[in-house]
Amino acid sequence: MLELRLVQGSLLKKVLEAIKELVTDANFDCSATGFSLQAMDSSHVALVALLLRSEGFEHYRCDRNLSMGMNLGNVSKMLRCAGSDDIITIKADDGSDTVTFMFESPNQDKIADFEMKLMDIDSEHLGIPDAEYQAIVRMPSGEFARICKDLSSIGDTVIISVTKEGVKFSTAGDIGTANIVCRQNKTVDKPEEATVIEMQEPVSLTFALRYLNSFTKATPLSETVSISLSSDLPVVVEYKIADMGYVRYYLAPKIEE
């Protein structure tokens, strides 16, 4: 028996919007720790890892570990029927091939339940080792989204270079080139507006902009994003979900031929 009640149901709506472009079908894993997902995109270039910790739910009952295969487009269709202030409860019985999403309006005058068929998904679960990153950049998530969007109108790939002075995003295409430098800027009024660079050594890596643009669908989840870079390692783009967990995207770098 599984019953997860999330008062801030809009979080779940935002989570689905953040991952459904990248991943078509995925297993949602439920355990005492929380509600999680790990899935690769169809070309196995990027990986998304989601965690919503059990403590973040108003009510969290998960009698045994459960893996529920879902088509994310279909989940998104169901969750779009929930109001933005609705409380969302996810329910499933042991051995059942369906999951139920229950939506309650804040004043309890409207209650809806949507039952969705589960599917069998053969997914590879990858072990992500802890790594020391050469550089970690934390910046406003809206700024990062803007940069990825702007650069993708010029080129297909971006070179992200971190030095002590700042982080540089560069691209080149048929019509020309573009460089955007964000300097470290800790002296802002609000901490979420800061650009902070923790650097062990300078690093420069190339990534496909198409994927970074998909990652920025998570922007509504967090005011800030952190980008962790190391040579010859996938970049980690992390959006923290307040008090609950995170959505992390891993993207394999492009390697010079």
Partner: peptide
């Protein structure tokens, strides 16, 4: 833009 590597080359199957 170089050759695109895949994520499974970096992370082991758990």
């Amino acid at each position: 833009g170089g050759k695109q590597s895949i994520i499974t080359n970096f992370f082991k199957k758990a």
